[in-house]
Design a protein around this nucleic acid. Structure first.
Ligand SMILES: [Zn+2]
Ligand SMILES: [Zn+2]
Ligand SMILES: [Zn+2]
Ligand SMILES: [Zn+2]
Lengths: 151, 151
DNA sequence: TATTAGTTTATAATTATTATAAATACAAAC
DNA sequence: GTTTGTATTTATAATAATTATAAACTAATA
């Protein structure tokens, strides 16, 4: 964890931003809960446990800054709340998501499944791809089994 | 246009919803502006021109209903506002988008580029795909040319 | 006609997010 | 070590999008 924190610190410094105590606290929360998809409010509540004096606006500001630097990705699963998701170490593109419409769970796919598709988009549409958002909606493994049992 | 309106009317009736005058007005606006990606507020303003007595809440309710029936798709391009997008005639899946980070334009890709990827998700992750959202962020053809000229 | 269920309107309320101004922290210059 | 300037944070207010509520309306039904 300290390793990744260090890298992020360097990324901030590279753009002449500082890793203030508040920013560090926020990044620590994001690292600890990497598998989750936290909203700004959730980050705020978790950060308050280790840095109680922090303000919600600071959380929004910091998450915004981290988004700009491509350290986190902001994503909206359609419920009106933005989630903030740490980029995987060294990842060029945002990872993909599987959202279960039954139980609401969110799985992650780290492999880049879009390389071929991006080539097509580049060649056939002349669009220079910089990043992507791919989310599948459907039924997760667990919920499929439940459905089978129920019948 | 009347043809598609008729189909939508049938889809509503099939779930025992009525095509009220307000709903019809909203659908007409969506059909007329099919190439656009309108927000609820924009739909509201356009509908007011042909049905001035309509209320904003009715627009939200109707767009919600049309989303449920998969007649429109609700999508968020990351600016905090939901856009509503008519499904193409007979399309099983939501179409894809190319969002230009330079000029903000939104292009559509109607071809389903994800068939292979969905097979992988299905087989390797055991996830039963029902629908998807795919958006590419990058530089559109026009902005690429501008950049070339500028250098 | 009276009743009922579904729908819409107008308005208020809620929620997420952003803007503002004053306070604070901190590094560089003196 | 103090001063000065800039970046950052806090607390609060404001904004914008969306949803909830209650009263009114519509159209079908008994
Ligand atoms: Zn599930
Ligand atoms: Zn994720
Ligand atoms: Zn462009
Ligand atoms: Zn579209």
């Amino acid at each position: 964890m300290e390793h990744r924190l260090d890298r992020i610190k360097k990324q901030l410094h590279a753009q002449s931003y500082k890793l203030t105590p508040q920013r560090e606290a926020i990044v620590r929360v994001l690292l600890e809960r990497e598998e989750d998809h936290l909203s700004a409010e959730e980050v705020y509540l978790l950060v308050k446990e280790i840095a109680p004096e922090i303000g919600l606006a600071t959380v929004y500001r910091t998450l915004d800054l981290l988004s700009e630097l491509k350290i986190v990705d902001k994503i909206n699963f359609g419920d009106g709340v933005s989630s903030y998701d740490l980029r995987k170490e060294g990842a060029k593109h945002f990872h993909h998501h599987l959202v279960c419409t039954e139980c609401g769970s969110v799985e992650e796919i780290v492999d880049d499944l879009l390389e071929d598709v991006e080539k097509i988009v580049q060649n056939d549409w002349g669009f220079q791809v910089k990043d992507h958002r791919l989310t599948f909606h459907g039924v997760c493994r667990v919920c499929q089994e439940i459905t089978v049992k129920a019948t």
